[in-house]
Simulated scan of single mutants.
Amino acid sequence: MILVVGGAGYIGSHLVKELVEKEDVVVLDNLSTGHRSAVDNRAIFVKGDLGNEEDLQMVFRSYPIKAVMHFAACSLVGESVIDPLKYYQNNVASTLTLLKVMLKFKVKNFIFSSTAATYGIPDVALIDESSATTPINPYGQSKLMVEQILSDLSTSDGLKYVILRYFNAAGAHESAEIGESHDPETHLIPIVLQQLLGLREKVSVFGSDYDTPDGTCIRDYIHVTDLASAHILALKALLTGKKSAEIYNLGNGLGYSVKEVIETCERVTGVKANIEMADRRQGDPARLVASSNKIFSELGWKAERNLEKIIADAWKWHQNQKY
């Protein structure tokens, strides 16, 4: 049985929907940002807190857990700057509690949902796993701290892990049963689609004078189902002994500009967006795109779904919501 921590959240729930086809799954989530309705009914759901040792021990006593997939984290960059203690408490301290209980119950297979924010502002066009890790905010720093802890526990206790770093998960399950639902919403694609549905007055574009072909920032977007498949491949590699301590980037290798994303949303939906040009945001690099060559060569994974598919699936889900 696989324990998915944070399995009611956006990426976690999409992973669970795919994973239940292959494994028995138990989900632990405190529903602070996740949604109970997003958890596939074939999975066992336990409402509990990652930082509560009693909640965790109950799960490990009750179910034959053979691996843990960890998605539970605070993930808003801006908030992490304002309230770093929240991020270090939830993302680092609570993860330490999870790891402590895992080792107590002799469960030593761990998949960690990390972030390409660990790289900070890289000086390369395409970020690979050898790029320097110099995070510029507490969110990225908290994830990098956990990565170091995993490395140390691999040496001391034989913990086996795979770390997956990525930027912008996007889209929705093609069934339109689950999708991206955050409060507040800070991600570009759902913001644009909400504006096209009449739920927002405008879409703000922060900066149009970057050193990019159209002047707007370029970012890496991956369909959330592609992310789920990468996590499942990583789990298989771990359980079969193919990998024991590995880091992989997940990216599309291309990147899309803010302008390209908006134009694709307009093309897919047939609705024109109301755009407002705004000043640059502090700390926004011109280009952040990750290379996935390593995971492709070692595990055979690549992003299969393009930007149009990402937006089409997201649009279908948004149209089904009762706002």
Rank of each mutant, 00 (worst) to 15 (best):
F45T: 07
L164G: 03
H231F: 15
L98A: 10
V16D: 12
H187Y: 10
G34A: 04
A314I: 04
G158T: 13
T216I: 05
L193G: 06
V224A: 11
N41K: 15
L31D: 07
I127T: 15
K259Y: 08
I232D: 01
H14C: 13
P64T: 10
Y88G: 03
L50W: 09
I65H: 07
P213N: 11
V26T: 11
E21K: 15
L238Y: 04
A73S: 14
T97D: 03
S130R: 12
F60P: 00
G241M: 10
I310N: 03
M69H: 07
T225M: 09
A132E: 15
S131H: 01
V27A: 06
H187R: 15
V16G: 02
K66D: 13
T95D: 08
I295W: 00
D128T: 13
L250S: 06
G48R: 07
G215L: 10
L15K: 00
Y256C: 01
H70T: 02
S297Q: 14
Y10F: 15
N109A: 05
F71I: 02
P64W: 07
Q195T: 08
M145R: 02
N168W: 09
A93H: 11
V27S: 06
G207M: 09
S151G: 14
P84M: 08
I247P: 00
S62W: 02
F60Y: 14
R280V: 10
E308F: 02
E201T: 14
Q57F: 05
I218T: 09
E79V: 12
A172E: 03
Y10Q: 04
G140A: 04
I121D: 05
Q321M: 14
K259R: 14
A172D: 02
L250M: 14
K272M: 02
A273V: 07
A117P: 00
L159Q: 07
D226R: 00
G251P: 09
I178L: 06
K243Q: 10
A176K: 13
A273N: 09
L250F: 03
V46I: 15
L56S: 02
S204I: 07
Y221D: 02
K236H: 15
V162I: 14
R305H: 13
G34Y: 06
F110K: 06
I189N: 01
G215A: 13
F71V: 01
D284F: 00
D83P: 00
D220K: 01
V107K: 04
D40A: 06
K302W: 06
T269I: 09
Y10K: 03
E266N: 05
P64A: 11
N91V: 00
D40I: 04
D29I: 05
L164W: 11
N30T: 03
I149G: 05
K302H: 14
I275E: 13
G283S: 10
F60C: 10
V107D: 02
T95Q: 08
V4P: 05
L299P: 09
L31N: 04
D209I: 01
T225Q: 06
A314T: 06
Y119N: 12
S229W: 11
T186A: 10
W301H: 12
A237P: 02
L239G: 03
P135L: 05
K302Y: 12
A72L: 03
P135S: 04
S297G: 00
R200F: 05
Y161I: 07
S62I: 03
F45D: 05
M1G: 08
G179A: 05
